[in-house]
Design a protein around this nucleic acid. Sequence first.
DNA 1: ATCGTACTGAAACAGTCGTTTCAGTGGAGG
DNA 2: CCTCCACTGAAACGACTGTTTCAGTACGAT
Lengths: 180, 180
Amino acid sequence: MSDRRDDLLRQAYAYALEHGLADLSLRPLAAAIGSSPRVLLFLFGSKDGLVRELLARARADQLVLLDQARGGGLAEVMEAVWSWLAAPEHRALLTLWLEGYSRSLVAPDGPWTDFARTTVEDWLKVLADAQPASDTKAAETERTLALAVLRGALLDLLATGDVERTTAAVRSIMTGYGQT
Amino acid sequence: MSDRRDDLLRQAYAYALEHGLADLSLRPLAAAIGSSPRVLLFLFGSKDGLVRELLARARADQLVLLDQARGGGLAEVMEAVWSWLAAPEHRALLTLWLEGYSRSLVAPDGPWTDFARTTVEDWLKVLADAQPASDTKAAETERTLALAVLRGALLDLLATGDVERTTAAVRSIMTGYGQT
DNA sequence: ATCGTACTGAAACAGTCGTTTCAGTGGAGG
DNA sequence: CCTCCACTGAAACGACTGTTTCAGTACGAT
């Protein structure tokens, strides 16, 4: 019966969104989601195993977004992705994402392995699919720039909460692309 | 005699650049720099006090860069900043910066307070000084975009190490600005 | 009824953490 | 010489960490 396992993972995910991953600890987590450290270790093998599944879930959430954003040219995809990034209800997920990103840069081992590099590739691939001719050097530069703008604006937004200014910045660069 | 204090801070800073701030611990740090937890606490009051000074130093390092990058139009400043960001010898400092950035988003209290928001403002101010008329809405959008590109490309670079691709992306947007 | 297997509560284990207590150094000023 | 004071080594404190040990409980199959 992995119902309980899935349920606990879902609750642990919600808890991680609220409290962050950096100082996640089994005892407080278990207490908050009505379980025990013993059970969490039994179900997930180790804390690292649990964290790995939490990160996988965070990545899965983003992949769902990226899939929904498909279709149309680069401008449409950027618009769709940005409106998702700027939505207040995704703020917690995105700070969690940034946490995993920065952590994977300083500690290449552990559950975070390759998290940063993987998400770069995930996103670039989706952007490439939105380009008519994605195999040219110019196209690669174009989508790298698009990714940089989205993420740079996200960093800004997460720190300042200024939706208007950051959205204006993202929009301003899309006008350059063809409006398919 | 604060010679010793400055010396220890300098060494602790070097240690933090190598090992990151997230799981910084007094005993290993003290052992590595030829001191003791007792002395570190005596000199800096608490671990938080030490971390605060380390972050202040990281910020100071960036302010030096930003000051050197001054002069010229937005394109020149971007070029100067990017060449600094892309330099391999600054990789450690920048991952440390990102670590502090993400940490300050999830734990608003503690030594990290406002670290993210502060650095956004630091950078935007320098970019504003590079604009001929910085008080218009269009100028604000323009420099927000410039900041986003620099930081987004930096995120990409830190994860992939692909200097060529990220540099091309940054350069591609500068061509739009006037080459003062 | 008996076995086996999946699960779980309570407690302990060994370790690390930041910080404090206590007992000293060493050297400058009176 | 004595005192004061900035400084430091050693050890302990209490709290917390992930994980393990042990002793069960519940339940389905034989």
